[in-house]
Design a protein around this nucleic acid. Sequence first.
DNA 1: CAAACTGTTCTATAAATACTAGAATAGTTT
DNA 2: AAACTATTCTAGTATTTATAGAACAGTTTG
Lengths: 116, 116
Amino acid sequence: MLIRVDPTSGTPIFAQIVASVHADAAAGRLNPGDRLPSARDVAGALGVNLHTVLRAYQELRDEGLVDMRRGRGAVVTEAVEPLAHLHHDIAALVARARTLGLAADTLAALVKETYR
Amino acid sequence: MLIRVDPTSGTPIFAQIVASVHADAAAGRLNPGDRLPSARDVAGALGVNLHTVLRAYQELRDEGLVDMRRGRGAVVTEAVEPLAHLHHDIAALVARARTLGLAADTLAALVKETYR
DNA sequence: CAAACTGTTCTATAAATACTAGAATAGTTT
DNA sequence: AAACTATTCTAGTATTTATAGAACAGTTTG
């Protein structure tokens, strides 16, 4: 599995790693039982610090998306399935927002606010 | 119009102000021509600094949602209409995400990622 | 068993961001 | 003219982000 990051993005690196895993889960490229690459491998491949990757992984654990243990790594849980189920709906919403000229941040903020 | 903010939220205050305006616009409580309360008033009411409010307003201007001029304040533009149009779709998506047990941050991040 | 791998925890530091504070400026409205 | 508005400037503090290295403690593999 491939994790991409843009250092000039403005959004924190750890958040981009989280978002990258979210995207893979939503697209069905990540299934329960799959193992994320080790934090050290990701840090090496991306040229970022181990702690930065671990912070992202810990957030994924807090969300319940992965199960983490020493020696075994980060294993994807069944909590990814809802993400895959929503994928289609999200894509439709994004497509419509795009035709309306809405910025990504604006829509994301709107979704977050609506949740409250 | 009412702007709410939670200092313990973790998300920056200026971002919460932006999100609050987004929400009002999406709910149709904000129409083209309406004037946002002056930055000084908002700062006073929320107990935050003037600059913090202005930063939020400037972001709204960058998004094209308001037109700002000295002496006149921040006036809502026609760019709020797409937000109102999406309101129903967003509410439906959020409702479904909620039944699936998805966290607000997770869904928002997913939407943002899908935009790319 | 032993080696290699995994996340966990700890201390430390540097850089960037967020927030506050005060003051002066320059437009607009009343 | 007075009261209002955003704009711009400098400045300081607190928080967040990212880096660095080391030691630790489980798990898996040979």
